[in-house]
């Protein structure tokens, strides 16, 4: 195990800069997710850590060693890929032992390490099978097994769950988290799914356009997003935003006035409130119901405040019809205000 340090790292493809001077410190044993929309550079950064992509500028250190020019096999890392990347002609055991074999480990050690990894991942019954004889979840476990047998200093995961169905994804999510809690290996996990990022990580790195937008613990990002992008990216359904100005009566938008907490910053240009922080109240602002989405545990109300669409998540079971006017009140302690520059005030 080791800490991982990324220092002013840049990546150019020709003249095009895709990673803009990113710096990041990952502590020993920490589980960090890189999250962001497609094309934000998260996979490129991961591949740079792995050594699969060159580093145009800056430094990456694993432990105390600068690895910029170290071959992937010598970086003491293991990587789990989106499509599992299992060798199709090798059995599960052969897949797991391949790296050790290339390293020239003796047979007894290899057998022992494979056996250990297989027992951690409940893969013992499948050791003699070929990847094509396994289900998606089992293949993903084999891919993890292949990483575990090498006992690397850092685990790298590149969207490992995106090929699984929703139910399996949730199951594998907790398996990976459980694995990390047991092995305590430093982990960098790339995903575009903010729920995955929120539920698994010790620390989340939100990326956009090759830049880091915010780094923090999951709830920090949720409670205090640094800017509009993080505010809308973290949380599902995403935060409701209204453009307007601060006045004496509240936050004036083109569609009406929204209540503000006392002492609000006068320069606010965008008002944000999460759907779960809206409640039904007689003194709330009027919203026309458009669609009702009951999920059992909660109800999502998609409505219209003037011309502006908004979403509210209500804990209670409600029975509204499209066209009904309801009154919603924001929890004033949870209102987010953003300036002209889109930064949180």
């Amino acid at each position: 195990m080791a800490n991982l340090s990324i220092d002013k790292v840049r990546k150019y493809y020709g003249a095009h800069e895709v990673i803009h001077s990113i710096s990041l410190d990952i502590a020993d044993g920490e589980f960090v997710t890189l999250v962001g929309p497609s094309g934000c550079g998260k996979s490129t950064l991961l591949r740079m850590i792995a050594g699969l992509e060159g580093i145009s500028d800056g430094e990456i250190r694993i432990g105390d060693r600068v690895v910029n020019n170290v071959q992937p096999k010598e970086r003491d890392i293991a990587m789990v890929f989106q499509n599992y990347a299992l060798y199709p002609h090798m059995t599960v055991a052969e897949n797991m032992s391949f790296a050790l074999k290339l390293k020239g480990e003796n047979k007894a050690t290899i057998a022992k390490r494979v056996q250990e990894a297989a027992s951690i991942l409940a893969l013992e019954p499948y050791l003699d099978r070929l990847p094509k004889q396994l289900s998606g979840g089992q293949r993903q476990r084999v891919a993890m097994g292949r990483a575990i047998v090498r006992s690397p200093q850092v685990f790298l995961f590149d969207e490992p769950l995106s090929n699984l169905d929703a139910k399996l994804r949730v199951q594998m999510r907790s398996e990976i988290k459980d694995l990390h809690q047991r092995l305590k290996t430093t982990t960098v996990y790339v995903t575009h799914d903010q729920v995955e990022a929120m539920t698994m990580a010790d620390k989340i790195v939100v990326m956009k356009g090759g830049n880091v937008e915010q780094v923090g613990r999951p709830l920090e990002l949720y409670d205090r997003p640094a800017n509009l992008f993080v505010a809308t990216f973290i949380g599902s359904p995403s935060m409701n935003l209204f453009k307007g100005t601060v006045t004496a009566t509240g936050f004036a938008t083109a569609d009406g006035v929204l209540p503000l907490p006392a002492g609000s910053h006068g320069a606010a240009a965008t008002y944000g409130i999460r759907p779960e922080h809206l409640t039904i109240a007689d003194d709330g602002f009027p919203v026309e119901v458009v669609v009702l989405e009951p999920t059992g545990a909660e109800t999502q109300v998609i409505g219209r405040f003037g011309q502006q669409q908004l979403v509210a998540v209500l804990r209670d079971r409600v029975d509204y019809k499209p066209g009904d006017i309801i009154r919603l009140k924001p929890d004033l302690g949870c209102v987010h205000l953003f300036g002209q520059d889109e930064r949180h005030l």
């Binding site: 890929f81 499509n83 060798y87």
Partner: peptide
């Protein structure tokens, strides 16, 4: 899949290893 070549590089296969263990079986 390119991923197989990446995986093989991380596993420690050189140019010949990748040809023999990824390209030929593929």
């Amino acid at each position: 899949s390119e991923e197989l070549y990446d995986a093989a590089r991380i596993d420690g296969a050189g140019l010949w290893g990748r040809f023999w263990h990824v390209t030929m079986p593929g």
